Amino acid sequence: MAERSLVNENLVTVGRITAVYGVRGWVKVHSYTEPMENILDFSGWWLQAPGAGGQESWQPLEIDAGKRHGKGLVVHIKGVDDRDIAATFCQRDIAVAGSEMPQLEDGEYYWHQLQGLQVISQFEGREYRFGEVVRLMETGANDVMVVRGGEDGRERLIPYLPGEFITKVDLETGVIFVDWDPEF
């Protein structure tokens, strides 16, 4: 498998190979897509290179079969029919080219587009800088942004509810405007 550095490519992490499954080269995949089977629709998988160090390095990865199994997914890596070889692919992220991601409707965003954006609250006529979105979480009821830094250095959990707490997302300026009490 040829290794290739994709520093300038727009890769989006869509899952992770977690463990081997069986003895014939199958591996378990934890998918970040919704529904989880959508990860199988992407044609060009990239696997995080082992020991990539500080610089992200990725390898092309070919899958020749994949299916739902129990509460998760299993895939077969093309040309790998041995459990020990399959184990070398485990605990590594899976990415796809951003250009493969389906187009969204206006006002909809992928999580990777929101991560790293600055969050500013315009609460009761005053502006508060809360820091940046470090990650998002699913809670069941709604998604939640984890925001760190800002004027007071606190971590905040802000529900991602457009029209209620999220007043505007501006990808060009890198800012999410929220209506959120700075005391929370």
Rank of each mutant, 00 (worst) to 15 (best):
G72A: 13
G149V: 02
T167I: 11
Y109W: 09
E155K: 06
E132V: 07
F130C: 07
M137P: 10
G79T: 06
A95E: 13
N38A: 13
L136H: 03
A97M: 15
Y21R: 14
Q115G: 02
F123I: 07
V7K: 04
S121Q: 06
E56H: 01
D82T: 01
D81N: 11
E105N: 13
V169L: 02
R129D: 14
L6Q: 05
N142G: 03
H30Y: 14
A95Y: 05
V74R: 12
E37R: 03
F42S: 02
Y109F: 07
Y160H: 05
D82G: 08
N8R: 11
R156Y: 10
V23Y: 14
E62D: 10
V119Q: 04
D84F: 09
E172A: 12
T33W: 09
E164S: 13
I85T: 10
G44P: 04
H76R: 15
L117K: 02
L171E: 12
K78H: 14
E138C: 08
M36P: 00
R154C: 11
R148S: 06
V12G: 00
R68T: 13
K78P: 04
A141P: 01
Y21H: 15
G125P: 00
R156N: 00
F89W: 13
D93Q: 12
R83F: 14
V178C: 10
V134N: 06
E100F: 05
G174V: 04
H112E: 08
P35C: 01
V146R: 05
I120F: 09
S57L: 06
D41Q: 13
Y32N: 05
V74W: 07
Q59N: 00
L161C: 06
P182T: 08
Q113Y: 07
P102H: 11
G174M: 08
H112C: 05
S121M: 04
W26H: 05
M101H: 05
M145A: 12
E151A: 11
L61D: 01
G44T: 13
A86P: 01
G174R: 07
V29P: 04
V20D: 02
Q115W: 04
Y160W: 03
L11C: 03
E164Q: 12
H69F: 14
T139Y: 03
S57G: 11
V96G: 05
E124Y: 03
F184R: 15
D64H: 05
R83V: 15
L11I: 07
Q115I: 11
K168W: 11
R156T: 02
P159E: 12
W58R: 00
L47S: 09
F184I: 09
G54C: 12
D81V: 08
G25F: 07
V80E: 00
K168I: 06
R4Y: 02
W45G: 13
G150N: 02
L104S: 13
I39T: 04
V29M: 06
L117W: 03
G116H: 06
D179M: 15
W45N: 09
Y32C: 00
E37L: 11
L117P: 03
W45A: 12
E108S: 06
W26K: 07
E138L: 09
Q103C: 14
I77Y: 01
Q91R: 14
A2V: 05
V29K: 07
G79I: 08
K71S: 05
G15R: 06
Q91Y: 10
D81G: 14
